[in-house]
């Protein structure tokens, strides 16, 4: 199934692809139809136009992924909802990781331990969505426990691949609705 994606960065798309593959068989979906904004301003400006193009390309479902950063959650969600709500998608979801998508990658200490070959279990925050700069936090944990350098464009996908989705659902509210959305469109 072709699902249209609008995201800020390629690494966000990578993470979402790995997580989706944990919910539904990877052979049943493709993220080939996408728009990557490389910035939040552009995503907001172009969201509607891009969503219209994705419909024309044959996507029946849409995922919009936008980090919360310093925005107001309600305002951002309302804005993005307004951009796509009246378009002819069978289903869509607006995902707003708080404050960055890297918060999702902080939920599973075991995944980090395996990906970076850490000798002991890293201490990860119990509420990753409260961390204001989760990318920097992740970098700090990786350096502290493995001595390695963390690169979001490389490691986000690998961490997502190892992630326990049950933990992610429990610890990150911004992700909580995603598994049921995917299950619904594939049912």
């Amino acid at each position: 199934m072709e699902i249209g994606i609008i995201a800020e960065e390629y690494s966000d798309l990578d993470v979402l692809h790995e997580l989706t593959a944990k919910i539904v068989d990877v052979r049943r979906f493709s993220f080939g139809r996408k728009f990557i904004a490389h910035g939040c301003g552009k995503l907001r400006k172009k969201c509607r136009v891009w969503a219209e193009i994705l419909i024309k390309k044959g996507c029946r479902h849409l995922i919009v992924l936008h980090d919360l950063d310093n925005n107001s959650q309600d305002e951002l969600r309302t804005f993005l909802n307004r951009s796509v709500a009246d378009l002819n998608f069978s289903g869509y979801i607006i995902l707003i990781p708080k404050h960055e998508i890297e918060a999702w990658l902080l939920v599973d200490a075991n995944a980090l331990k395996k990906v970076f070959g850490m000798s002991k279990m890293p201490s990860v925050p119990s509420s990753p969505e409260l961390i204001l700069e989760p990318k920097e936090k992740l970098e700090e944990i990786v350096r502290k426990y493995s001595g390695k350098q963390y690169f979001n464009s490389i490691h986000n996908r690998i961490i997502a691949n190892r992630l326990e989705i049950r933990l992610l659902k429990r610890k990150c509210l911004s992700f909580a609705d995603y598994p049921s959305f995917i299950n619904r469109i594939f049912s």
Partner: peptide, 11 residues
């Protein structure tokens, strides 16, 4: 304002 609402720095 442009970066937050309209587009990217490169543009």
């Amino acid at each position: 304002h442009y970066l937050n609402n309209e587009g990217n720095l490169g543009e």
